[in-house]
Amino acid sequence: MSVAADSFVVQIKDLHVEYKTYAGMVKVLNGVNFHVDAGEKVAIVGETGCGKTTTVKSILRILPRNSRIPKGEVLFKGENVLKMTPAQVRILRGSGVSMIFQDPTMSLNPVFTIGEQMMEVIRNSGSPGAEKREVQQELAVMALRETAMPDPERIMLSYPFQLSGGMRQRVCIAMSLSTPRDMVIADEPTTNLDVTIQDQVLKLLKERVESKHSSLILITHSLGVARETSDRIYVMYAGNMVETAPTKELFGEQLHPYTQALMRCIPRLSGGGVAEGIPGRIPNYLTPPEGCRFAPRCPHAMERCRSEKPEFIACGNGHMVACFLYDEKGGC
């Protein structure tokens, strides 16, 4: 990879995150490496509980209280987020990165109007004139109008419970882009919506991000959603990024055995029968397997996989994989 490191909006280096629970230390992230270019739309794909949300929450420093980061760096435009002062964090959250949560019924404060909440977001953005109420009002209405909401003035005066799930997620999208942002993070934004409007919301998100020239991180467990929305995909398994490639490239050729298995799980209209599952189970994070965490389920696992953790190696065309199968052959 020859891209200069400082063109990355976000870069995560060897990030480890642990949660303290009654049962002991749960080692959720195990050396995550990850980056997003300016204006790039990246999808993170993986099973529930593999650490996707933990990864993106670390960018905003909103990990739960019981978390610990023993090792690693999270860089936002070259600046280490984990070492930022509170004032810097406020700027990062106010104007750098915004996040759309999974469940729109839960992600808006139930006892404040949409307008109050949107104006609060704009107030903290540090945009020119954002401390004036009229400017906040105007920007909020504009953002709502841009998401094709009918009658934004009325929406501003509504409470979240008066809107449908789809409407609320539009509000969240409008909120996240009401002032210019370097990056928007969307954590499974359509999972809790009716199937009929999932597509609309996804298209809207993509369109809004593109028109504002922001980067996007989209978390999803659906390869289909990732394919429609992203420029590049990260595949995540049990606290590790195992493979990344431009979207087209990845759908053409999968290198990591987990990605291959994941692709076989997609039900197809043509071809025979029910989709396969992946044998075995997600490892126990309390006592994760040493070496490659996929090794216990991997059909190609070797001696080395069980003792040593594979790192990303570049295979050309922006394709990277963390698997010893390719190292051994001396390339891909």
């Binding site: 406020r90 959250r93 106010g94 104007s95 949560f101 808006l108 909440q117 909120m175």
Partner: peptide, 8 residues
């Protein structure tokens, strides 16, 4: 969490 993430 969302409001915290917006820098309130």
């Amino acid at each position: 969490q969302a409001q915290q993430a917006y820098g309130v």
